[in-house]
């Protein structure tokens, strides 16, 4: 079984809002003080892929990232999670891709591998937050897509995904191959890589692919949307801090304030 997990590098979402600035020239965040990290849902997807591989004899995990040289870090990290293979696909003119174009290129890349039995992506990346890549990828590959999966299992030729539903959970069965978009759960908390695996990851190769290696549709690589303007909205609320000597006094003050609201 060949599992492909698509990884994305993003601006560290833990960056406190006070350090978050937009460069009006590029419409991108000023990354001066922020680190670039693996997107957290992508990391959950990677963890899910590795766990699944370890349960299935002969299965392999390919970590795939669309990005420039800087994104080698996320592929090294994937290798330290013990991914079997790392592939980076990039072309300099792909500077302003959107989720739909990314979905197209990733689909063509996976086809260049001869396909995959299972494709995992994070549900949504914490930067542009589209939640589009997984579903677009599935449509491009003409295979089923299950979104918001928190757990995956393989039973014979059937893939079983536990997913968030409108009111609780549901288990969806699909045949292989299929795409799953992964959310975080207690089952896919990213591991702490072993020191040995981190060391090994440094010397492993990262394969590089470019547009010419893939059968890409130039039209579908054009961004479907254009980001015209980015700004930081002023949403600060004036917070009224309650004062009091101790817990009960604060609680009593707060109870009074809450009673004044018309909602209770």
């Amino acid at each position: 079984m060949h599992i492909v997990v698509c990884l994305k590098q993003v601006l560290d979402p833990e960056l406190p809002p006070r350090y978050f600035k937009i460069d009006p020239e590029t419409n991108r965040p000023d990354d001066g003080v922020a680190d670039m990290v693996m997107d957290s849902y992508a990391e959950n997807a990677l963890e899910t892929a590795i766990q699944l591989r370890d349960k299935i004899g002969g299965a392999t995990v390919t970590a795939l990232c669309l990005g420039d040289e800087d994104s080698e870090d996320v592929l090294r990290r994937a290798l330290s999670f013990t991914a079997d293979r790392a592939v980076r696909v990039w072309e300099d003119e792909w500077e302003n891709l959107d989720g739909q174009a990314v979905g197209h290129i990733l689909a063509r890349t996976i086809q260049s591998f001869g396909g995959a039995d299972l494709v995992l992506t994070g549900y949504q990346a914490s930067d542009i937050e589209e939640g589009l890549v997984g579903p677009v990828l599935a449509e491009e590959l003409g295979i089923p897509c299950v979104t918001l999966a928190s757990e995956l299992a393989v039973e014979g030729s059937i893939l079983k995904a536990t997913c968030e539903a409108e009111n609780g959970y549901q288990v969806i069965d699909v045949p292989s191959p299929a795409v799953f978009t992964i959310v975080s759960s207690e089952k896919n908390v990213p591991r702490l890589p072993k020191v040995k695996d981190i060391r090994l990851s440094r010397s492993k190769p990262i394969e590089e692919l470019e547009a010419d290696d893939l059968e890409i549709d130039a039209e579908r690589c054009q961004p479907a949307v254009a980001l015209r303007k980015v700004y930081v909205p002023d949403r600060e609320v004036a917070c009224e801090f309650l004062v009091g000597e101790d817990g009960p006094e604060l609680a009593s003050g707060l109870a009074g304030k809450l009673m004044e609201l018309k909602v209770l």
């Binding site: 978050f20 937009i22 419409n27 937050e129 054009q222 980001l227 980015v230 930081v232 909205p233």
Partner: peptide
Amino acid sequence: HYVRPIYGDKAYGEYTIN
């Protein structure tokens, strides 16, 4: 121009359709 939050709601982006 469509408005949507990005970067974990730290910013708003305005998009047009191509």
